[in-house]
Structures are given as structure tokens and as C-alpha cells.
Amino acid sequence: MNTREASLEALLRQRDVEAFYYHEAELLDERRYEEWLDLLAEDIVYFMPLRRNVQYGSQDRAENTREGLDAAWFDEGKQTLTQRVRQIRTGIHWAEEPLSRVRHLITNVRISDTSPEDAGDREIEAKSNFLVYRNRIDDETDIFAGQRTDRLRHENGGWKVAKRVILLDQSTLLAKNLTFFF
């Protein structure tokens, strides 16, 4: 593959992943949660650490709580995510009844290869920034900014999220709850 072909290849892949993210955001914003769950691998790790204020030099080891060990906002798999969707669908989950208005803005998509082109289960790492807006009832408004680091797996002609690490840019959570998805 010459340079031009490689650039085109990268461009197409970039476009492909961005389209996947826009589609995912649309499903969430349109409350098509079951279709969103279909975009998640069965073995997905969905992790959002707590973030601390720590002394310069110790950020790498102490700023974020550790996956699989510490407290977190989320550290779960598909079963719990599915339960969250089922809970919203009961119509009596009062924190989401009536439903919030949520909008996902996904930007700054950066892709890096994590497995060779010819691997059976092709996986890439994709980072993106998010701005999630939530409004509910009358004047309740929350804005969440942060970064997602995803491992995307190519399965049956489409992408699945195999891992999502969500870094919310807040230490003390400035919202009463997290009843929606990132």
C-alpha cells in the first residue's frame, strides 16, 4: 500500500468510527436503549473511575480510582447495563420518570491500532471527547464533559464496544445522579 492509499485507508476508518459514534449517540438521545445495548459486546467492561485531587507527581497512580479494585461511578458489564435499561422501561423509575432530555456531542475522535489488520477479531482503540447535556422536569440542567477510551471490536461487519473507560472531568459529582449512559 503506498502512502496515498494508506492515508485514504486511515481516512475511511476515521469516517467509519465517527459514523459509528454518531449512530450510537443518536440511539441514546432518541432513547432507543435496546438498540444501543446491541452495540455493546457481550463482555464489555464499562468503567468510570472516581477522580481525586492529588499532589503533582502522584496523578498517574492516585488521581483515578482503579478498575476492578476501588469504588467508581460505574464498574460493570452488560448485565448491569441491561438492568439499567430495563429499569427505565418499567415506567416507575422515578429518577427517569418522566424521562430526561439527553444529548451527546462526541468529538475529537482519535484512533490507534491495537491489533493487526488480519487478526480474526479486529480491535482498535478509539478515544473521543464528549459533552453530555441533560435537562429534566423544568429547569434541572447538567453538563458533563470528559473523555471515553474505547476498545472497538469489528464483528459481523460492524463495530461493537468491547471496553469503555469514561473519564468525567469532575471530582465531586456536580449532579444528583447518573441515570443515563456515556
Binding site: 468510570m48 479494585l69 476501588d70 469504588a71 467508581a72 461511578w73 460505574f74 464498574d75 460493570e76 448491569t80 438492568q83 439499567r84 429499569q87 423509575h93 422515578w94 429518577a95 427517569e96 459529582l173 449532579a175 444528583k176 445522579n177 447518573l178 441515570t179
Partner: peptide, 21 residues
């Protein structure tokens, strides 16, 4: 830990509804 986190706190399936009240 996994059970605590899915039950309690702002993302906990149980306690979200308390805070709404």
C-alpha cells in the same frame, strides 16, 4: 464492590430514586 456500586450512590439503581424524592 460491584454489588454496592450497582445498588448505591448516584449511579446506583436503588438510590437514584431516593435523590429524586
Amino acid at each position: 464492590r460491584r454489588y454496592y456500586l450497582r445498588y448505591a450512590g448516584p449511579a446506583g439503581l436503588t438510590e437514584q430514586d431516593d435523590m429524586e424524592n
